[in-house]
Amino acid sequence: MNIWFLITMLAAFLLSAVGAFIGVRTLRSVRAHRGSPIPGSEEITNPMAELQRRALWNLLTMFVGICLMLYLFAGHSVTDFFKDDTFRIGLTFIVAMTLVFNLILMLPTSKRGRWSKLFDERDELVLSRASAFQLTGLMILSVIWTIGLTEYYWNVGAIPIDIPYLMFWSNFLVLFLSRSIGIVYGYWWLDHHGN
């Protein structure tokens, strides 16, 4: 196991996340200065719900994670997953980090303790509709895997043993990614069309 490789990947992940954070904060402050409301007045346009904001952050984090995974995949084949320890550990590490970030960001959905004040029936409605996106995401992923694997390994008649592991991780990623997309879309829909 190459410890320096892990440290480099962790540093890259954290640096990208910090960069994205600074970028969004800057963009938000620029927008706030452009159209500041009258002091003391109440907002008519709906500010972002906590869950919506966190879903957007999650999308951003997953984008960073997926970019790092693609970077790792460059110059490797799928069969390197078990042959190359550094590749396997690096990939697993990035996927795990991405999923841990997702779990932390999505804590308000637990509705427990202090989170309950950030989450109400409107958020619950969005969340329940987002599950349709998860199902669709998984269906699309299974179609991609099926077509890809049968096309690529048709003549061989068998798939490498590494593939089920990658399928497992990709299922997790798509499950969380599609939920965040569903949440963001759900709020957009509510703001534009009501429920």
């Binding site: 709906n46 500010p47 972002m48 719900a49 989450f119 509510l190 703001d191 009501g194």
Partner: peptide
């Protein structure tokens, strides 16, 4: 305020804003 109403009825301020704007049916 919207926040006071939200706290009193147990929902978020965003929901009150959406209700007032006619963008959400409670």
């Amino acid at each position: 305020t919207q926040q006071e109403l939200a706290d009193a009825v147990g929902c978020t301020r965003q929901t009150i804003i959406a209700l007032e704007a006619g963008k959400y049916t409670p």
